[in-house]
Structures are given as structure tokens and as C-alpha cells.
């Protein structure tokens, strides 16, 4: 796309503030009001978006009978109770331990895929090798695989390793030894790492491939090799997208139920918070009243992560430096 030509093609008169035709003061004021609609719209969305969460929060500090009897907006100060939270933190299933387990899953499952995917994205974007495009499309296409289908094979692999029986001499060669990983948090984050790859590569490649070619060429002329370019240029320049991906990957892995549930199985001591809280609800929804509180406990750490990483979305990491 070219920048210069189409920007101002349709040359409509601009409504300069304070207008050149003096007559329409009131009209201009109304118009000015209407022009602020986007901001109003933004805050309207914000309010609408927060209502469900607000309701959840209010309900999390009301007891079961109150939750069922009246809407949350009719809450009275006297209704507040921390019983639901007490119940969660006192749970036999061990919320503290489960939070540790969640961290033991989510942290490696965030950092490791970022590293590996950044390598691959750089490789696909800036290293010229045969079959690059085809391989890239094939990789990203795997995004479409419903991960449920991969759960059982992955579990089998973590359970038994991977073996290959040689024909004729009937000897089994172990391709991946059995590390006895089934039922551990390690199995969970390894699985997350694999499943995250297509999206991570897709997202990072989109960003890394759009970095200006000049930078790379200049660096190559300087004699920098791929490793140096990647390490010294690409990584620092990709901070916003890395932060974005880190946020999502952390949230997905922190909030994941399915993979953890499959890989951990019956091993209660390795269960992350999602499983513990879902199980707390009781069969037939017997303890549904503590779910709002559970959801808040669950969401607390992801929100901190989001706030912490949000500051990396800063305008012009790249632009400012090119200009300078």
C-alpha cells in the first residue's frame, strides 16, 4: 500500500472549530456533542462488558439463598459474607497447592513456547530455505486441529514414551524413553507447548516478517549472523507482540481445564486451580454458590499478569528509532 496518494483524495471541507460561517452556533454545539459519541460508545461498551463480571463479584460475596432469591443488583450492605471464599480456601482439595500447580504449569508453558516459536517465526520469516512457504502454511494449518484429538496420543506418549518395533528382528527401539510423566505438571506444560506452537508461530511471524528489511540487510553487511540478528535486533523489537502472546498463553494455560484434566488424571496432588474449583461445585450443582468466588480466585493472577504486561504495548518502539 502506498501512503501518499489516497489520504486526502476526497477533499471535503473540514469543519474547522469555530466555523467559518457563524450562523450555526447551536448546531455546531450539537454536532460537537455528537462527535464525542465514540468516547461515549467506548465507555458504554466498557460498562456493558463489566456488568456480568460485576454481578459475579457481588454474588461471590452473598450466600447461597440470597444468590437464588434476588438479583445481585438488589444487594444490601448487610448481605455481604465471605463464607464462599472461606469455603474455597478451606477446601480439602487444597487450593494453595493447586495455585502452585497452576503456576508450575503456566509459567513454563508461557516462556518456553515463546522462545521456540520466536526462533521458528524468525526462521520462517528471514532465513531463506527450500520449502519455507509450504512448511509455514502446513505448520499454521495445524491450528485448525481440534486439540481434543491429540490428547489421547499425547497421554500415551507421556505414559509409555514412544517406541518403534523393528521388523524382522523384533526388537523395540525406544525413540522417546518413558520419563514417567503422566500425571505430572511437566506433562501438562509440554502439551501446552506443542499445542501453542501453530498460533504462536502465526502471530509472531506476522509481526517479525513485517520488520523493515533494511535493518536486516544493514546488519548482514555489518557481518552479523542470524543468531546475533535474532538476539540483538528481532527480540527487542518484538516486545509488544511477545508481550501480547505471553498474556494470552499465560491466560489460556492458567485457565485450561481440558489438557490438565487429561494429563493429570487421578493424581490429586498435581491438580491446578481450574480442576479443583470445578470439582468444588459438587455433583448436580450442589455447591454452585461458591463458583463465583472460585472464578474470582482463579482470575486474580491472570489479571495481575495482564496489568504487568500491558505497559509493553507502547507506541513506536520501532518507529521512533528509525526516525531518530
Amino acid at each position: 500500500m502506498t501512503l501518499s496518494s489516497p489520504v486526502i483524495t476526497d477533499s471535503k471541507p473540514e469543519a474547522a472549530p469555530g466555523g467559518d460561517d457563524g450562523g450555526g452556533g447551536a448546531v455546531d454545539r450539537v454536532y460537537g456533542f455528537l462527535r464525542s459519541i465514540p468516547t461515549g460508545f467506548l465507555w458504554l461498551i466498557v460498562v456493558v462488558w463489566s456488568i456480568p463480571t460485576l454481578g459475579l463479584f457481588v454474588n461471590s460475596i452473598r450466600d447461597r439463598d440470597a444468590q437464588r432469591a434476588t438479583g445481585w443488583w438488589k444487594v444490601e450492605p448487610g448481605d455481604f459474607t465471605l463464607d464462599n471464599y472461606d469455603q474455597i480456601f478451606a477446601a480439602r482439595a487444597g487450593l494453595g497447592r493447586s495455585l502452585l500447580n497452576s503456576a508450575a504449569i503456566a509459567i513454563p508453558a508461557t516462556i518456553i513456547p515463546i522462545a521456540i516459536a520466536a526462533f521458528a517465526a524468525y526462521g520462517f520469516a528471514w532465513i531463506d530455505f527450500r520449502g519455507r512457504k509450504g512448511l509455514f502454511i502446513a505448520t499454521v494449518s495445524l491450528l485448525a486441529i481440534p486439540l481434543q484429538v491429540a490428547l489421547i496420543p499425547a497421554l500415551q506418549m507421556f505414559n509409555n514414551g514412544a517406541h518403534f518395533t523393528l521388523p524382522l528382528i523384533d526388537k523395540t527401539i525406544t525413540l522417546i524413553p518413558d520419563f514417567d510423566l503422566a500425571g505430572t505438571t511437566t506433562a501438562v506444560w509440554l502439551t501446552h507447548t506443542g499445542f501453542a506452537m501453530p498460533f504462536a508461530i502465526f502471530l509472531l511471524h506476522n509481526y517479525i516478517s513485517s520488520l523493515p528489511r533494511d535493518i536486516f540487510e544493514a546488519a548482514r553487511i555489518d557481518g552479523a549472523d542470524h543468531f546475533t540478528i535474532f538476539w540483538r535486533l528481532v527480540l527487542p523489537l518484538s516486545i509488544p507482540v511477545l508481550a501480547a502472546f505471553a498474556i494470552f498463553q499465560f491466560l489460556w494455560t492458567w485457565n485450561d481445564y481440558l489438557i490438565a484434566n487429561t494429563m493429570i488424571g487421578a493424581n490429586a496432588s498435581e491438580q491446578p486451580t481450574t480442576i479443583v474449583i470445578a470439582n468444588l461445585a459438587g455433583d448436580f450443582g450442589r455447591n454452585e454458590n461458591i463458583l463465583p468466588a472460585g472464578a474470582f480466585v482463579q482470575a486474580f493472577i491472570p489479571l495481575i499478569v495482564f496489568f504487568a504486561l500491558q505497559r509493553y504495548f507502547v507506541r513506536g518502539i520501532l518507529a521512533g528509532s528509525v526516525k531518530g
Partner: peptide, 25 residues
């Protein structure tokens, strides 16, 4: 930041949580 954080909040709530919320809604 405030606006974006609030709109982002649902991402931080697990699906179990989200379904509970919307059952109430």
C-alpha cells in the same frame, strides 16, 4: 488502560467462571 483492562477481563476468567456468569445474566 482502565477501559482496556475491563474489556480484557473476560479473557482472564476461566470458562467455568464465564458460564456461571452468563447463567446468572
Amino acid at each position: 488502560r482502565v477501559a482496556k483492562s475491563i474489556v480484557f477481563m473476560p479473557m482472564a476468567i476461566s470458562l467455568v467462571g464465564a458460564s456461571i456468569i452468563w447463567r446468572f445474566v
